[in-house]
Amino acid sequence: MTVAAAPVLVSRSRARRKISWQTISDHAILIAGSLLMILPVFAAFMTIGASDVEISRHGMQFTDGSHLAENFDKALFTQGGFTGAITGSTMLLNSFILGIGFAIGKIIFGMMAAYAIVYFRLRFATFAFWVIFTTLLLPLEVRILPTYEVVHGMGLINTYTGLILPLVASATATFFFRQFFLSIPEELVEAARIDGAGPVKFFFDILVPLSRTMIAAIFIIMFVYGWNQYLWPTLITTDEAMFTLVRGIKQIYQSIDGGSDIPEFGRALALAFIAILPPVLVVVIFQSWFVKGLVESDK
């Protein structure tokens, strides 16, 4: 027995060693990948601790962080821009309004339309379906100029309505909720009808509670999407008090090659960091909902 067992043991330990080399190289590749993702943002964050002079002389650098508080303070509370009417905290507020407003708009309109399409016998349901889903094909970027003219004509320039509504005009959320509603067992509707529940009661008492996870997932995706919008806010907000963070950074980095003064690197980097932080936190904290929503909504 013992004699026979020995070779097995040897081969097993050899196999384990082989696997461990493999494992080490796997981890090395993953760590290299993670560093590739992290380093640019980390270097930017470290550089916020330097003064504008140091940054313009040496570029991105590791510092003792002596100017960190000063740069963040400048980014959040000092007025800037051409008119001097905007601070970072106003932009932060506008970004939240855009992100949250966009996400809520998408969810409410999307759920309503999907409910109508899935749960009602309608003659024009198929037609409505196609009218809505064609919008999935053409992103806003493609029809940007005429959309701008329409919104301009309605006098919605520099309003939150004009900022948010045109972005809501696509069917991503409707499509997502339609897929989800279709996967809910039909017996639920039958049971609800036998119990005498009307469509409104069924929606609020059964469908909404069932969709809670899905609503959370789509809220996260839409919030990040809205927060990160750039082209549309750039066109529609000319008044600096309406700037979002992502749009407002442009104003600052445009000065980098502009004048003879030393550009405000520290302030721009601090603003970039503030612009990155909320969506990243949301995605990381609600990771499993986010991944589930992303993977399932696009299928």
């Binding site: 999307g110 399409i117 309608l122 009218v131 053409l138 005429p146 329409v150 005009a169 039909e186």
Partner: peptide
Amino acid sequence: MKRASFNQLGLPVWLLLPQLVIIGVFFYW
């Protein structure tokens, strides 16, 4: 569409209307 569904005309039209109006104004036009 589900096999078991509600038979109403008014409500679904009101449900679809906001989305269709937004899409009409900001997409198709």
